[in-house]
Design a protein around this nucleic acid. Structure first.
Length: 441
RNA sequence: GCCCCCCUCGUCUAGAGGCCUAGGACACGGCCCUCUCAAGGCCGGGACAUGGGUUCGAAUCCCAUGGGGGGCGCCA
């Protein structure tokens, strides 16, 4: 039978990083086997569902490059089907109505007690012992089905062959298996993948989002976007949280992952989500990114902070180019290009003290001004020659003469190579910034 | 409370009885490159949770203990 897998989120919030990984593994399995990837929306909780969340999920999957082949199907549109099947169970004597004084009358499934065994795709044989395991609800008093029920029914109706989901569902599986048994259906194979933990080893929690944000840890797709991560990096990183191709290969495109992915190689140990490696990986993808695309990726961050209205396209492009190998996150472009896009220099006092106010800083700057003034353009060779000449004449190292200029032009002791810094600022700004710095000293 | 899952460097992992004096990556430290910061290159420290078995031989198999996590909702 050809493979059919699904991603079945409930539209009750942002698309979570754990959800992305679940979607990814199902997507990879489908693509690897030439199967079909189904999207199903489990919107049976009227109170918590939202249109906006649905939109977020679809856009989030698209952003990650995880397209589905079939669906989306909506459980809210299949209520009749669930009711019909529930009735069958009732007629078979496997379900009964019970009234809760607070919540109303709901249909319950009669759970068989005793040993429950099944073979999990990632854990192997798993065996449960049900002693006083309570019966679970099939239909709520509202008439809506529960997850346990609708989810199993849909997996059957949609001919799902493998269910790849989080370990948090492992304990529920025997119950759903009993449902399949009661209907006389063949169940799909289940594979439960390890949970993703936060840096403290606890389950990722929505409540901690502020703390996560403060350490640059994106736990939802919108956080990924906000914090300047590339989808390639997120997908690549998440793929490696619980799966490995086994040959020391780490940087992979989606296509490569598709080729390499097998569910046998999904691990069984929970993984902590730390930001370090993700940032490194993001930097790798930023460096590989074609410049034109990188400019567009950076533009919103810059536009949010600077007035780009009068900035020439070439300047913007060059500013981004200069920082490409320094970025780990897109949002870092903002502080790094401050010297280009802000009209006035913001001086770092420590840098000023170290390079300009100390021994000969001012004299060096004056000398460089004299050397720079006759030039219209600042190319690599002439600039380097000038710096070297000044350094030699004074018997000091290159850094001794480059740094004062750097601080005068950018306010900081860190910037792209001198000739690039000069070139992007242009003659006029170079001279005026040197002059106003000199005046200040 | 009951049931279940997990346990290799700080982190992600490779490892399916001898290939392991345990490999890779991130992070960390050092060096090189160098006008700064990065990037890049090289080197280094760093792990089989513990205790019992099984076996000629165990990170790999079994059992306990410890630790971590999950499930037991008219949430999904």
């Amino acid at each position: 039978m050809s493979v059919r897998v699904r991603f079945a989120p409930s539209p009750t919030g942002d698309l979570h990083i754990g959800g992305v990984r679940t979607a990814l593994y199902n997507y990879l399995h489908a693509r690897h086997t030439g199967g079909v990837f189904v999207l199903r929306i489990e919107d049976t909780d009227q109170a918590r569902n939202s249109e906006e969340s649905l939109k977020t999920i679809k856009e989030g999957l698209a952003w990650c490059g995880l397209g589905w082949d079939d669906g989306p199907y909506y459980q809210s549109k299949r209520l009749d089907r669930y009711k019909e099947l529930a009735k069958q169970l009732e007629e078979k004597g496997r379900a009964y109505w019970k009234t809760d004084p607070e919540k109303g009358t709901a249909l319950h499934f009669k759970l068989e007690q005793g040993q429950q065994k099944f073979t999990d795709l990632v854990h192997g044989t798993v065996s449960f012992m049900y002693t006083g395991e309570p019966d679970f609800v099939l239909l709520r008093s509202s008439g809506f089905p529960t997850f346990m029920f609708a989810n199993a029914v849909d997996d059957h109706d949609m001919n799902i062959t493998q269910v790849l989901r989080g370990d948090d569902h492992l304990s529920n599986t025997p119950k759903q298996l009993q449902l399949f048994q009661a209907f006389g259906w063949t169940p799909p194979d289940y594979g439960h993948m390890p949970l993703i933990f936060d840096p403290n080893g606890a389950k990722l929690s929505k409540r901690e989002i502020e703390m996560y944000r403060s350490i640059g840890l994106p736990v939802t797709v919108s956080e990924c976007q906000r914090l300047g991560y590339l989808p390639e990096a997120i997908v690549n990183f998440l793929a490696l949280l619980g799966w490995s191709p086994g040959n020391n290969l780490e940087l992979m495109t989606l296509e490569e992952m598709v080729k390499l992915f097998t569910v046998e190689r999904i691990g069984s140990t929970p993984a902590r989500f730390l930001v370090d490696k993700l940032q490194w990986m993001n930097g790798q993808y930023i460096r590989k990114c074609p410049l034109d695309r990188l400019v567009e990726l950076c533009r919103p961050y810059l536009a949010g902070k600077y007035d780009l209205g009068k900035v020439e396209a070439e300047t913007l492009k060059e500013a981004v180019r200069q920082q490409q190998e320094r970025l780990k996150r897109l949002d870092e472009i903002v502080p790094l290009t401050k010297f280009v896009f802000l009209p006035a220099v913001e001086y770092d006092e420590k840098a000023v003290a170290k390079w300009l106010k100390a021994d000969g800083g001012k004299a060096i700057l004056e000398e460089l001004r004299a050397g720079l003034a006759p030039r219209e353009r600042f190319e690599k060779e002439p600039v380097e020659n000038l710096l070297k000449a000044v350094a030699e004449k004074r018997g000091v190292k290159l850094g001794k003469v480059a740094q004062p200029l750097r601080v005068a032009l950018t306010g900081s002791d860190q910037s792209p190579p001198m000739h690039e810094t000069l070139a992007i600022l242009g003659k006029e700004r170079v001279i005026s910034r040197i002059d106003s710095t000199l005046k200040m000293l």
